[in-house]
Design a protein around this nucleic acid. Structure first.
Length: 882
RNA sequence: GCCGAUGUGGCGGAAUGGCAGACGCAACGGACUUAAAAUCCGUUGACCCGAAAGGGUCGUGCGGGUUCGAGUCCCGCCAUCGGCACCA
């Protein structure tokens, strides 16, 4: 018998033969590549844009997007295909439902690893990048994803980053108009300014405009990582170390490009509301933006003309402010410091400056600080209070100064306790509290605020401050402007030149600005970027010099979903008609479904939303948000329940899974593991389980002849379905349709297994049942279903035309699900005691009578009084007895 | 500390307030086979009573509550994971 395929095994070899030596249960290794080639050659999944040949304007559109990968040298791991399989199933399903489906893929290919590889080899990073892209693409194609590969993009392609640079110029040439709450061309601001100040010098006007651009130059302290030779965004610094590599990061002032994302803080917050995103991701973004309402109050410096402005969310506690604290870096520290304290203050400043961010936060539980010797005047009661400096006050938040209310703020309380400062209660809690009370209550010891509830007191005191001109209502954000330049080679160069110490935008005609080839890609070891080595490239003929920084890796991913819409468009970053078509839908966001990992919850997703809003304000796109619905796929752990890592040796490579079980089994298992959003461990036994399921599907249709060749099974006939079979068929259509819409793929697959189990034991397999199965299974297992569809077409041509992926999704008929008999559960006091079968729609009274006449029910109510009978028609009867 | 998510068999996981454990894995038994693998059929939450047929009790992290009825809703804890963390 040919089933002995593995019987040549040598004695002494392991009992469990690896799948590669074991005979495959169905010839996936033969037909999977064949169908992949077919789809490729026939461009089966290409979708035209409006106006292109073959475009069907009647169909609704569906834009389903994956977070594109960074093509690392490592290749794919099984975590990548999880989200990709989910979107692919939905894309294939939506096509069968008659949608124009946009389902593209591309490469986020700028980044440090390729640059470091270039440093090691001296080879241009584009070479390694191209190689990695080819590898990733081949791997993805082996899984049978239905991407429209004609729309493939690569952020390192000059044709692509030309438009990244172009968008940067839009930011550079724009400002945020607070009245319109939107970005406007900077030319409008210039015009307005000339109207207001006609005599202003050109240089002053220029400086004014430069202060308002959405892309601007700042000298502020930045996160400098010596090891990486670059600055990093706040978001890229974790616990005082670089997110990439874990190298030390120090703060130092440098001239850097910034993007004014803070101008959009409110819109980024409010416009989250209309999006179908997980609440947890919205919460992360809200938290990152960190909006807090409060007031600024000015404290006049005793004996000096200047005043200190503090920010507080509790202006109602102003009467309890017994001292003021400045961040050690605050510019007014020298002004305040008395001669006798000067040495001590400077020593403290030096000590703080030497601390890393980590030491200043996590490790510094014990408060430190020092008295400046200066005093300020409390604006509500004219009280003279001492001014301290302490590193628990952050220079980068609010005004870098606080009024300390130790009775009602934990941090101030700790500090006051340590340094013996006055603690004066000004808010009475509803119930007495020990120590520091930070909640709301009633104002006491607070002059004109006495007796007011906290919200009223806040309002009243702000009114007073505003009348006096000593403060105002204000809002603060944790969100900082986005540090947008990096000292790297392998990134987009800025379309900026410098002349006489001033920056100038290059004209659009000068784009793309292509990085020069270098002999040596190493960091310079100083703050000079690697591009400084390209002496000839730097100097332009007209005497200007190029900007030497490059953009961060986030730049390209900020707008890639737009380039897919018209990847080969010349003259514009996106074709306007294509943009209107694919991003339309009457909802705030344009992409219908976006699937990716949680790791991008704040960075990529916030930056993209920001750029998108700028483009919207300037009239370049038609929606206010990029992504309508967002789903995060969960992490896939190794078989040992730990995060997959090389060092643990628990990494599962999809290529190996495909070699042993096929792409369809990989896809099916990725989805069968559990809910898409959940974190869950890999299991090779689980893969075998779905592999066996696919083999059963195969053998439903195919059987082996004497020579072991696969041929169409004689059990497949044009026989009609039995009522029971028809019920399973239609119940499955209903369940799978609903589950796919809800992205509940694991339960959809479970239902398909029930379907197959129903027919596995059957003597004959009605061809109609097989046909419906192939339609329902196609989005999950496209190769197997395509192959069986073709095989069946030889015998049953009318039922199996063309490709299965080109067919209409089946509809279920509720009439076939209706039953005239239903099983009703009988309970006594909520406990199951019996089940009876009755006619569907049986009247309550009749049902109750039948239930009470059940011997088992009678047994359980014996000796008790029936107090009540709860009836759920066609479902349940609960007899309450006692 | 704050915010968010998650706790269900040996394992992955199912369950519009109405039969807890669908489906799969693993395990066990049977058929086929000289034998094994593969395949097919069956059993499988725990405990108790019974020779058996069958019957009973308990059971969704813990403690309360609402309800005729709670894995599901409410209150209070505990644990694990993720994020933020002196943000005034």
């Amino acid at each position: 018998m040919r089933h002995n395929g593995a019987s040549w095994k040598l004695p002494g070899t392991s009992v469990s033969a690896s799948m590669t030596e074991r005979r495959k249960q169905f010839p996936f290794a033969e037909f999977e590549p064949r169908w992949q080639r077919h789809w490729d050659e026939h461009r089966t999944f290409s979708v035209p844009n409006p106006g292109e040949p073959g475009f069907d304007p009647v169909k609704p559109k569906f834009y389903v997007l994956d977070m594109f990968p960074y093509p690392s040298g490592e290749g794919l791991h099984v975590g990548h295909p999880e989200g990709y399989t989910a979107t692919d199933i939905l894309a294939r399903y939506k096509r069968m439902r008659g949608f124009n489906v946009l389902h593209p893929m591309g490469w986020d290919a700028f980044g440090l690893p390729a640059e470091q590889f270039a440093i090691r080899t001296g080879q241009h990073p584009s070479v390694a990048t191209a190689r990695n892209v080819e590898r990733f693409k081949a791997q993805l194609k082996k899984i049978g994803f239905s991407y429209d590969w004609r729309r493939e993009i690569n952020t390192t392609d000059p044709e692509y980053y030309l438009w990244t640079q172009w968008i940067f110029l839009r930011l550079y040439h724009a400002w945020f108009d607070p009245e319109a709450n939107a970005a406007r061309p900077i030319s409008e601001l210039a015009e307005k300014r000339r109207g207001e100040l006609p005599d202003e010098s050109a240089a002053d006007l220029r400086a004014f405009l430069d202060r308002h651009r959405l892309a601007y130059v700042s000298e502020a302290p930045v996160n400098w990582c010596q090891e990486l030779g670059t600055v990093l965004a706040n978001e890229e610094v974790v616990d005082g170390k670089s997110e990439v590599g874990g190298f030390p990061v120090v703060r130092r002032p440098m001239r850097q490009w910034m993007l004014r994302i803070t101008a959009y803080a409110d819109r980024l917050l409010e416009e989250l509301e209309g999006l179908d995103w997980p609440e947890s991701i919205k919460a992360l973004q809200r938290n990152w933006i960190g909006r807090s309402e409060g007031a600024e109050a000015h404290f006049q410096i005793d004996g000096q003309p200047e005043s200190i402005t503090v920010f507080t969310t509790r202006p109602d506690t102003l009467f309890g402010a017994t001292y003021v604290v400045l961040a050690p870096e605050h510019p007014l520290v020298p002004t305040l410091t008395s001669a006798s304290q000067r040495a001590a203050v400077e020593a403290y400043q030096t000590q703080v400056a030497a601390k890393s961010d980590l030491e200043r936060t996590d490790l510094a539980k014990e408060k430190t600080g020092i008295f400046t010797g200066g005093y300020v005047i409390n604006p509500v009661n004219q009280e003279k209070v001492p001014v301290w400096i302490a590193d628990y006050v952050l220079a980068t938040y609010g005004t870098g100064a606080i009024m300390a209310v130790p009775a009602h703020d934990e941090r101030d309380y700790d500090f006051a306790q340590k340094f013996g400062l006055e603690i004066r209660p000004v808010v009475a809690p509803a119930k007495p509290v020990e120590g520091c009370f930070t909640g709301e209550g009633t104002s006491i010891n607070s002059g004109f605020l006495n007796g007011l509830a906290t919200p009223d007191a806040k309002r009243r005191v702000i009114e007073r401050l505003e009348q006096q001109g000593s403060g105002r209502r204000t809002v603060n954000y944790k969100l900082r402007d986005w540090l947008f330049s990096r000292q790297r080679y392998w990134g987009e160069p800025f379309p900026i030149v410098w002349r006489d110490g001033r920056h100038e935008a290059l004209p659009e005609a000068a784009l793309p600005v292509i990085p020069p080839p270098l002999e040596d890609y190493r960091p310079t070891g100083t703050i000079e970027p690697p591009l400084s080595k390209a002496r000839d490239w730097i100097r332009l003929p007209d005497g200007a010099t190029r900007e030497l920084n490059t953009m961060p890796q986030w730049a390209g991913s900020c707008w890639y979903y737009l380039r897919y819409l018209s990847p080969h468009e010349h003259g514009r970053f996106v074709n306007a008609e294509a943009e209107r078509y694919w991003m339309s839908g009457g909802k705030p966001g344009g992409v219908d479904l976006y699937v990716g990992g949680t790791e991008h919850a704040v960075l990529h997703l916030l930056y993209s939303r920001f750029w998108h809003k700028v483009l919207y304000d300037l009239g370049y796109v038609s929606t206010i948000e990029p992504f309508q619905r967002l789903v995060n796929q969960g992490m896939i752990l190794g078989q040992d329940n730990h995060k997959m890592s090389k060092s643990r040796g628990n990494v599962v490579n999809p290529d190996d899974v495909i070699a042993d079980y096929g792409a369809d089994a990989l896809r099916l298992y990725e989805m069968f593991m559990g809910p898409l959003e959940a974190t869950k461990p890999w299991s090779m036994s689980g893969v075998e389980g779905v592999y066996r399921f696919l083999a059963r599907v195969w053998r439903l249709v195919m059987e082996e002849d004497q020579e072991g060749r696969w041929q169409l099974s004689r059990t497949v006939t044009r026989q009609a379905l039995t009522p029971a079979q028809r019920k399973v068929v239609h119940a499955t259509i209903q369940k799978v349709t609903g589950d796919v819409e809800a992205l509940a793929f694991n339960t959809a697959i479970a239902q398909l297994m029930i379907y197959v189990n129903e027919f596995t034991g059957a003597e004959v397999r009605p061809v109609e049942a097989v046909r419906t199965l192939l339609l329902l299974l196609n989005p999950f297992a496209p190769h197997l279903t395509e192959e069986l569809w073709e095989q069946l077409g030889r015998e049953f041509a009318p039922e199996f035309p063309g490709l299965v992926s080109g067919q209409r999704w089946p509809e279920f008929n509720p009439a076939y699900l209706a039953e005239d008999q239903v099983e009703v559960v009988l309970q006594v006091n909520g406990k199951l005691r019996d089940k009876i079968t009755v006619h569907k729609g049986l009247e309550n009274e009749a049902l109750e009578k039948q239930a009470l006449s059940s011997p088992k029910i009678q047994e359980h109510v014996a000796g008790k009084t029936v107090r009540k009978v709860i009836i759920v028609p066609d479902k349940l009867v609960n007899v309450v007895a006692g």
